[in-house]
């Protein structure tokens, strides 16, 4: 029974925030590199703001602090600091504005963090994304085009 329970757990897609996520496009997972401008460890949602190489500022919504404390590795308000290099895998806003849902954060020392709420399912590919980034993929579409994400 325990195996069945875990199997069902693994297949579940869970939304645990206070609002709908329909404004984000979970079918797109996009890689953005930049520097942390602000990490807001706030309820109801955490927010990561980064500036990309072109100077464009982006904002990404993530799960709430109680959830991030229980992730592996856990995150607190001190985990990311202004100026830190960071890679964000995010699911963009459908309307094209400079924001989206946080999927994964990868720090300069290659630690992979899972800040996702239900707006982005990149965390379901947490084992794949570091290698995909090494290969130069900039999106889930790139990985699929290379035949890497057939089973996803």
């Amino acid at each position: 029974m325990a195996v069945a329970a875990l199997a069902c757990a693994a297949s579940a897609t869970v939304a645990i925030a206070h609002h709908s996520f329909s404004m984000f496009d979970p079918a797109q997972e996009i890689v953005l590199e930049g520097k942390v401008v602000r990490w807001a460890f706030t309820s109801p949602h955490t927010f990561m703001i980064i500036e990309d190489a072109a100077g464009k500022v982006w904002a990404f919504e993530g799960a709430a602090p109680p959830a991030l404390l229980a992730r592996n590795p856990p995150m607190t308000g001190d985990t990311f600091k202004g100026g830190d290099p960071i890679t964000v895998i995010m699911c963009p806003l459908r309307d094209g504005r400079a924001g989206g849902a946080s999927g994964l954060f990868i720090s300069a020392d290659k630690v992979v963090y899972n800040p996702a709420d239900a707006g982005c399912r990149a965390n379901q590919r947490i084992a794949d994304w570091p290698a995909w980034i090494e290969k130069g993929y900039k999106s889930l579409a790139d990985a699929k085009a290379a035949g890497e994400a057939k089973a996803q």
Binding site: A4, A5, C8, P66
Partner: peptide, 12 residues
Amino acid sequence: ACALGLLVAVSA
């Protein structure tokens, strides 16, 4: 088992 599994998924 599925109920318990879903509980695992939605809990910390």
